[in-house]
Design a protein around this nucleic acid. Structure first.
Lengths: 356, 356
DNA sequence: AGCTTACAATAAATCGTTTCACCAGAGTTT
DNA sequence: AAACTCTGGTGAAACGATTTATTGTAAGCT
């Protein structure tokens, strides 16, 4: 199978009867070319189906309209949506995007980061696997990096994230108000800064309610076991608050399996909304993260950095929306009268803040 | 902000005190280099943090370990999972992947296809937006193309898809057996070959049951209206079968809104499983597509094509799994005794087939 | 006419790599 | 010792584009 070569700028030049420089000038919209020649070049381009070779073009011009994106897991709808938005924005700015997934694996992330350098991107947007991201970034990395969603241990990075603490705190305050006396808070690990911030937000906002943290780790099988143990133990807490997406699904399924009903036996709330949460009955009370906005902010910041804006690293926190649903009704054990709760929306007030 | 240049092979050569050719030989594992020189080169590479420039490397060597992937929508979990699997496989074969999303828009797809040529990929895997894909492929496209999931109007492409007809037929046969007398089948549009195949599968397999097709189009708002109209009309069909992911969500929500209960008022089944379908009560009967397998087959085929295997276009159909759940119980209107239905799994029998 | 200026098109240098032809020196064969 | 063959290394030519410097031509000015 003799595969036909893609046409080069030289073939276009030959066919149009001009020099390659002229073809390049036409294609790049340089003003110093006569309409007649431009037409001939454009005809030849169309006839041959010529498309510029990005590799060669970038090599010579040294301007890389190219950015890299690294996410922990493309199959997570939140990250997928993040990438999709970025892709759209990049296209508008006439940038190309190289997207890679670390498949939830720090080693693979390190590998991808090394590999992505080979593309010579003008900038990078990364949602890091974990806090130790800085160690995995090849040192002397040549392009600006904007981190999103997850907070690195090391300082010195541009960062766009959500206000984990206040948002988780809002859920805790809500549960508090609903009259629950104790709440089990479940998350993968406090070594992940997101989870830590959320847990601290809960602790700070639970006025009367007792709170207890359970770390179940990232291994699903082991986590399910820990969780089941705790949920079979008595007394059962009045409410359960799950701090991340993976944990939420695991918790929800585990409760169903061992026959705990929501909210009859236990109230349930989660951080990070998923589609099904408004489809199940009752709906799940949750914190919805502004993914599109996060992508927009990250892109805007990276674009500024790529076009030369210097300055101290920026941290920006975005507000989440809190969705109160049927899974966290007024505590039925309480003597107080019943309170009707619909799909009421509860937005946090005030302006976003940028610490330091 | 004077951004530091990425080191080039020349700097490595200078630092190691050898020629650039030698550095290249070391990096590409050519055997004709002494251990002593190899060590010196490797040291220099490490000290400078040198990473090869993919653009330049590919330009010169003309071997493009690069494949393109075009999907209609990255936020669709099925496509996201498809891409994620491909990415993993590509990495194993030491290929790079350029992933783009057409954002459910044929024009954007055409644009992306044109743009992706600029990367000079050695091959392409495409899940087309619609049947008219062939018209959008720049003619004389230079690299092998493997299509997946959706069937193009034009022949002549390698294709990996699922057995839409038999799988949808299995659902229809199930509903038939459960004693439903009529079934409303809902899909976006019969102009999409997937939907057409599924509808034909339903028609062929419904023995006693009357079936009726409702096309609601791709515009969600308009579709919801059409659907609501039909669902408020009487008599209500005993069962509803939704043929694609978008339609399913729309249908499920619409039914909830106008107060139809599943399966009390109407039984419900769907093509294309989503996570929430096993979380809601009752679970939704559905057809689960083998996404990972589809990605594996597509990659294997593309790899063969990229390494020169010629031959007639191949069509391969993969088997789906049918998940029977509580949303399609034995028809309560029937006189016959109740039948207990759990989360029973029902796999299709037999071997995959390759028509023609 | 003679000189400058402006314009349009081109030749040639260049980007960072790989590859190919070649070379120096050591070892082997006659 | 001359004529080979290896071996391990290098210089320089590509690859396909962009950019810079240069050329040739026509028009404008004195």
């Amino acid at each position: 199978m003799s595969r036909q070569q893609s046409p080069s700028i030289k073939m276009v030049a030959d066919r149009a009867g001009v020099s390659v420089a002229t073809v390049s000038n036409v294609l790049n919209g340089k003003p110093t070319v006569s309409p007649d020649f431009a037409r001939r070049v454009n005809d030849a381009v169309r006839e041959l189906g010529y498309v510029v070779d990005l590799g060669a073009s970038r090599l010579r011009s040294r301007k890389a309209q190219l950015a890299g994106v690294v996410v922990p897991d493309l199959t997570n709808p939140m990250f997928a949506s993040f990438v999709s938005t970025l892709e759209h924005l990049a296209r508008l700015a006439d940038y190309d995007l190289v997207v890679v997934s670390a498949r939830n694996n720090a080693e693979e992330e390190a590998d991808r980061l090394r590999k992505i350098r080979a593309w010579r991107p003008a900038g990078l947007i990364v949602i890091p696997c974990d806090g130790a991201f800085a160690e995995r970034l090849p040192d002397g990395f040549f392009a600006p990096v904007v981190l999103a969603d997850r907070i690195p241990d090391a300082a010195g990075f541009d960062l766009i994230a959500v206000d984990n603490g206040p948002s988780a705190g809002a859920i805790a305050a809500h549960l508090d108000q609903q009259g629950y006396e104790d709440c089990l808070v479940v998350g993968t690990s406090l070594s992940i800064s997101n989870i830590r911030e959320r847990w601290e937000g809960v602790r700070a906002s639970a006025k009367h309610m007792r709170v207890e943290m359970l770390e179940i780790g990232i291994d699903d099988a082991h986590g399910a076991q820990l969780l089941e143990e705790r949920l079979r133990h008595r007394p059962l807490p009045g409410a359960l608050f799950s701090l991340d997406q993976g944990t939420t699904l695991l918790t929800y399924c585990t409760m169903a399996e061992i026959g705990l009903s929501v909210p009859g036996d236990i109230a349930f709330a989660s951080f990070d909304e998923m589609e099904w949460m408004r489809l199940v009955t009752p709906g799940i009370t949750t914190v919805r993260q502004p993914v599109e906005e996060m992508a927009e902010q990250a892109w805007a910041l990276l674009l500024r950095r790529m076009t030369g804006s210097a300055g101290k690293p920026v941290t920006r926190r975005l507000r989440c929306a809190v969705e109160i649903r049927g899974s966290t009704p007024r505590n039925p054990l309480e003597e107080a009268g019943k309170l009707k709760l619909g799909g009421r929306k509860w937005k946090l007030q005030g302006e976003p803040y940028s610490p330091e």
